[in-house]
Design a protein around this nucleic acid. Structure first.
Lengths: 239, 239
DNA sequence: CGAGTCCTTGAATGTAATCAAAGGTCGTGG
DNA sequence: CCACGACCTTTGATTACATTCAAGGACTCG
């Protein structure tokens, strides 16, 4: 038996049908039972340790991924090492589409991550005669594009304080889709990641958190923040 | 006979088949002759005067557009009037897809613009059983997303000088797709548009152009610039 | 308990923004 | 044809916000 990248690939506990609580949110969420069974046979379930890369910019892109568990950071680097995080991927997100034959950005696990991995060849053959699947991919791409455009507005035209507030609000709302609504917003990524997402330095992010706390808008707790005044907070984020 | 938004809608000189030099680049570029004929019957050809809006953010989005002639600016506004241009659309570009039932940004003509306009209902019925068309839309969305991600890197992590240089290089390359390669890069948009695209002020853009000219990298000419030292210039843009 | 990592705070610096004004260009009408 | 006005761009002086440089504090894990 050949060695597999992840030995549990065929283990029952990793089959989407039994395991995948995020399936309704995922790319495969609207497949019929039969289609889904076929789709599953194309999937490799892969687990990544914290900080482990899923793929890297400029690598030949042979696979696409559906994120099942955990959170990934997606980023681009300049030659001198400056980094821009272009997004955080949550369970249900679909990764790896690129306008060229190589990945246009890098992705790595923040905590532990589990993905469904699909090789592009079989994946493309599967979708090419399934209009509803193609339409779902269009929805996903359009939603991501909308997020990217919001982020351009944030990066180009908002102050540090507005950036941090808008980030916390949109992160809280995205988490709500997978975890449900909570008072406390958990932040699995570090300050440096937030800084690289918002186009700031780590010091400015830290100072801004402190400032928002002094202004009684949030309380900083381990691994996150609690929002004290959602009304005033949303207003600052929308500003 | 009912009044039409554009009286020449059915005029021969505006039919895509005879008029559309950019068709190979456009969303409809790979339709068979029969399909294209059907597609054309759904299209309204519309002309816009300089500065005229194609559509506005938050408006109910009933149409999508294929840009045939001219250049459009796409932008988002903050409540206080700060503006971020999220892109410039060229002939062949496809506009108006949104993650919600309303447009997520505004678009208006820079010079004179001509579009193919499609109402969403008929458009969606046309594409829903045409996998190759859906795949083409995916390509378009993926390409746009890639551009948006490049722009995030630019907005978040590049200096004013790098922003301007990178903008000129990518604009030159995009123009080459529709106009062919030239020494002079024409800039149909004004300095304020460039500033709002790069997340700068008009003064900083102006100063940076002047600086690049002093450094003998470009010459500023009416409605554009000439690149003097493409090698050094590309290096600065990539930096 | 100590090493390492991450986060916070302080002081000085620098890049781009803001405020202000002059210079160009274009189109219109005298 | 020139003069005027509107609009856009350039340049200069000052300010402000975020960065950089530096150091101390907190938490985790072996």
């Amino acid at each position: 038996m050949p060695h597999l990248a992840f030995p549990n690939t065929n283990c029952e506990e990793f089959r989407c049908s039994t395991h995948c609580s995020v399936r309704p949110l995922a790319i495969c969420g609207e497949l019929s039972p039969e289609e889904h069974q076929e789709f599953e046979r194309l999937a490799q379930h892969v687990r990544y340790a914290p900080k482990e890369p899923l793929f890297s910019e400029d690598e030949v892109s042979d696979s696409v991924f559906s994120l099942i568990e955990g959170i990934a950071r997606l980023y681009k680097l300049l030659p001198d090492g400056r980094r821009q995080i272009i997004g955080f991927a949550l369970p249900g997100d679909f990764l790896g589409m690129a306008p060229t034959p190589r990945y246009s950005f890098s992705a790595d696990a923040i905590g532990t991550v589990v993905t469904c991995r699909f090789f592009k060849g079989p994946f493309n053959r599967f979708i090419e005669n399934k209009p509803h699947m193609l339409m779902r991919m269009n929805e996903f791409a359009t939603r991501e594009l909308g997020q990217a455009q919001d982020q351009m507005l944030l990066l180009g035209r908002r102050s540090a304080e507005e950036k941090v507030a808008a980030f916390l609000v949109s992160w809280r709302d995205r988490l709500a889709r997978v975890e449900g609504v909570t008072k406390t917003v958990t932040l699995p990524m570090g300050r440096q990641d937030i800084a690289d997402f918002l186009g700031l330095t780590i010091e400015t992010v830290s100072r801004t958190f402190t400032k928002l706390e002094r202004e009684k808008l949030i309380v900083i707790v381990p691994d996150g923040v609690r929002v004290l005044d959602p009304k005033r907070f949303d207003a600052l984020a929308a500003a």
